[in-house]
Design a protein around this nucleic acid. Sequence first.
RNA 1: GGGCCGGUAGCUCAGUUGGUUAGAGCAGGGGACUCAUAAUCCCUUGGUCGCGGGUUCGAGUCCUGCCCGGCCUACCA
Length: 691
Amino acid sequence: MPTRQILVTSALPYANGPIHLGHLVEYIQTDIWVRFQKMQGHRVVYVCADDTHGTAIMLSARHKGLSEEQWIGQMSQQHQADFAGFDIRFDRYGSTHSEENRQLCEQIWARALEQDLIAARDVQQLFDPVENTFLADRFVKGQCPKCGAPDQAGDNCDKCGHTYAATDLVNPVSTLSGATPELRSAPHFFFQLEKCRPVVEAWIDRPGSLQSETANYLKGHFLGDALRDWDLSRSAPYFGFEIPNQPGQYWYVWFDAPVGYIATTLQWCREHQQDLADWWQNPATEIHHFIGKDIVYFHTLFWPAILHTAGYQLPTRVHVHGFLTVNGRKMSKRDGTFIRGRKYLDHLPPAYLRYYYATKLGDNQDDLDLNVSEFVEKVNTDLVNKVVNLVSRSAKFGGQTGLSATYPADDGRFEYAAAQGQAIAAAYEAGELSKAMRLIMELADRANQYVEQAQPWKLAKDPQQATALRDTVTVALNLYRQIVIYLAPVLPSLQQQSGDLFGQALTDWNLAQTPLLGQTIGTYTHFMQRLNLQDVEKMIEETKLENAAALANATPATADATEAAPAAATDTADALLAEPLAEECTIDDFVKVDLRVARIVSAEEVPEARKLLKLVVSLGGDQTRQVFAGIKAAYNPEDLVGRLVIIVANLKPRQMKFGLSEGMVCAAGGGGTEVFLLSPDSGAVPGQRVH
RNA sequence: GGGCCGGUAGCUCAGUUGGUUAGAGCAGGGGACUCAUAAUCCCUUGGUCGCGGGUUCGAGUCCUGCCCGGCCUACCA
C-alpha cells in the first residue's frame, strides 16, 4: 500500500474546565486511529489545541482574579498533563490564542472579504455609557417584552420562553455597571454562507465526507432553506482576536477555534521544517476531524465553507461520535459520574479505559455507555484472563528455553492470525474499533486453546521433551506477540512492556506477519493487574463527595491539587456571576408581589410535558390553586405532597398547553435537575404572607 | 409537533446486496486441567429478531402504521 499523508484532529477542548471521561471518548478514539495509521507506516500528524476565547473564559479569569492569559495557561498545562496520562500523543498541542492563529485568521478573513462573503450590517445594540462598551446579550438584564418577567437575559426569557433581541427588553440594565444602556448602532460582520452552498452541498454529498446520519441531519435541518448568515463578530468586552481595522470588534470564538487546527499544524511545520501547504493545500493529504455530535453544525457547514474560501483543502472525513453516559444515565455531578480524567488516573491505569472505549466504539454517533460492572468484567476477562494470561503462562518457560530458531508446526495458527491482520486493520481503518477488538479477542481464545492442547507444563517435567517445550513456547509467545501488535494502537503500554520482553520494538503492524525466532526472552512480571469493582466505586464515591461539596459551595476538604486556586472556605461567586443582581427596587415595588406560604396537596406528572409537574396547592381553608412548575427533573411528585412551599399568589393566571397555571412556586437554582424549592421554617402555616 | 438514530439471548453487541435449523463474547449450568493474576480448556441452558400489517417462493434484513428509548429542533416552563 502506498504511504498516505494524513492530518488528524480532535476537537479543541475549551480552556475553561478540566478534561473528563466524556471528553476522553474522543481523544482516545482519535489517538487509537492515529497510532494505527502510524503503525501502517503512513505519515500522520495529529494536532489539537486548547480553545481559549470567548466570554466564558473572560468571566472565569475574572472570577479567579487572573488575567485571561494566566488562566488559559493553567488550563492548558492541566489538559496536556491529563492527555499525556491517558497515553494520548499529539504531534503538536497548541492554543487558539497564538500568534500563528491570529495571522491565519487575518489571512482567511482577508480572503473572505475579497470574495465578498462578508456582509457588514449595523446592528442596533445596547451600549453601556459607564463602561464605554457595547453589551453582549448576556450582559443585559431587563423585563421580558412579552410576559414582563424581570431579570431576563438579552436573548430569551426563561419564564415564558419568548425569544427577542436585547434591544427589545423593557427597562434594560447593564450587568457590568448597573447603568441604563443606550441604544447605539454597532457594525457587525456576517459570513454569507448561502453563497457557498454549492461547495458545501457537494462536499456533504460526496461519499466518505460524513457518516450517513450526519448527512441526513444536515439535509433535514439546514440545506432545505437558504443558509442563514453567520454573525462572526462580537463586541467588546470579549477575550479573543480583534478584527483588523475594527476596533472593539472581535471574531466570535467559533471563527478562530477551527482555524486553530491549521495554526497548530503550522507550528508543527515550523518545528519540523515542513511546508504548511503540503498539509492543508495538498489534495493528496487526507484531513480527518474527530468531533462529538454537538458540534457537527460548525464543522460541516461553516468550516468547509471557510476552508474553501481561504483556499484550503476540505476535510476528507468528519468522524462524529456520540456522548458518554455512565451506567445508562447522563453524566451527573450528583451521581458522581462526572469523573475528571485526573481523578480516574489517580485510581486506575489508562489502558483499561482505552480498551473499554475501544470495545464500545464504532463508526457511528450512538451514545456510548460506561457501565461500571461491565467495565470491570471486560478488562479482567479480555485483557487479563485472555491476553496477558498468554504471556503470563508462557514467559517463565520462555525465559528458560528462548525461542526456537525455526518456526514450529502450529496447525496454521500463526498463519491464520497473520491473515486476520487484514480484517483487523480494515476495522481500525473504518473506525469500527469494537469489531477490531472482537477479532483480536478471537485470536486470544485460539492461542489459549493452543497452549491448553500443547500442555507445556507436562513437557517441562520431562527433560527429554526440551525441544518440544521450546517449540510450544515459541508458538504461544508468537501468537501473543501478534495479538499485542494488533492491540498496540489501543494499549501502547502493553506494546512497550511486551517489546521489552521480546527485545524487539513492536511498532510496525507488519511484524505480525513474521514470527520472532531465535530470541531470548526477558523476565516477566505482571503486565496488568485485575480490577476490582470496589476500586471503580471508590473513584465514583470520591467524585460524588467532591461534587456535593462543590455544589454546596464549600471548599471540599479533599480539594484536588489540580484544581486551580481554590477560593477560601467561603461561597463562590459563581451564582452571582451567572445571574447578576437586578435593578434596585423600592418597598412599594416589592409589596406588589404577594408571596404566600402554601401546602402542596397533590402533585402529578404531566406526561406530555418534559419539564412540568402539575401541582395543586392549598392556601388554607378551601382556597386551592393549580400551578404548573418546571421541576419535573428535580423532584418526584410523591415526595412533594404535604410540603410547604412559597408561591407567588397574585401572579396573573396563565393559560398553558396543559391547563391554567394560577401562580408560581418559588425556587432557586439553574434549572433542570438543579432546582431547589423554597420552604418556610416550621411553624409557618398555609396562607401566611411573606414580608 | 417535526427530524435523525436505535429497539436481535439475562448483559454488551454481530448479522454483509432479503436465501437453508438467527450468531459471538460475557454472565448462568455441567465437566476437565493445574503452566497461568480463583486465570485456562471442553460441553451446555437460553431468542414469537419491539408490535401489527404489506411486498416476496422466501423478511432480523425491503415498504407502511404504531409503541418504546436516545439525541436534535420547535413549543411550553
